[in-house]
Amino acid sequence: MSMSDKYFAGLDMGSAFTKAVVTCNKKMMASAVSPSGGNYLNAARRVLDESLSQAGIGFENLAGIVATGLGAGNCAFEARKVSDLSCQAMGCFCLFPSARTIIDIGGQFTKAARINPEGRLLDFLISEKCATGSGRFLQIIARILQINIEDIGPLSLKSQTPVEFSTNCAVFAESEAISRIAEGAAKEDILAGVHRAMASKVSMLVKRLKMEPDIVMSGGSSQDAGLVATVAQAVGMEILVPEKPMITAALGAACLAEDEPDI
């Protein structure tokens, strides 16, 4: 750590997970993720302490913090609030400067945005009030299939005959999945069917936005390789995925803390 280095933190306080990133000259120095667990305040403290510790600096070394996400209003630190879409856009842009379209499948909503060559928001759409287009849908199905979230992607890619869901409602899809299990459908086919249902919603949103390449998918759901592949097929374009897709909004927040004192 040099005396002239300035450090910045980004906090993404989402409905499911809270994430922190520490940057210096827009390079990621450290990151941490923790379940929000209904207590944004504690989760934010936890992830910020952990990432500061990883970076080997103290809170007093931070030159600025930007907070984003549903829980940003509960942040106990002196932090500027920026919309999560702006943070996602900047985070994805920092990782992929060629990015022009962003897809973020979060715990509650799916968001699609077009960004300019500086990583700024141009246009965006947010999914309607429906769980089928959100990451929650995957969590519901994983629970009834009794599999871990991280196993969904690899398992779904083995599917040969994806189940066709006849409903657009996550609650009814849950009972439909139970019926398919009872009928002997394979788990991978059920998961692939879920991906198709989600991809249909996501691609509709992205196409409405008049997408442009490159497309980057962020958010926890983009760790699911099966979902990424199905969405790519639905939109007809390759999709880039960050190495740590859960922390892109926090990274963008930290970058915005560096270069935008007053958004």
């Binding site: 919309s83 909503f109 945005a113 928001l121 141009l122």
Partner: peptide, 29 residues
């Protein structure tokens, strides 16, 4: 998205998230 009178089609959290993104988009431009 919501409705002119039916509150069941409205989500305050979603609207606020969208309002802030829209403000950011105008600020960026």
């Amino acid at each position: 998205v919501s409705d002119m009178v039916d509150l069941r089609d409205y989500s305050e959290a979603q609207w606020k998230a969208q309002i802030h993104a829209f403000l950011d988009a105008m600020a960026s431009r």
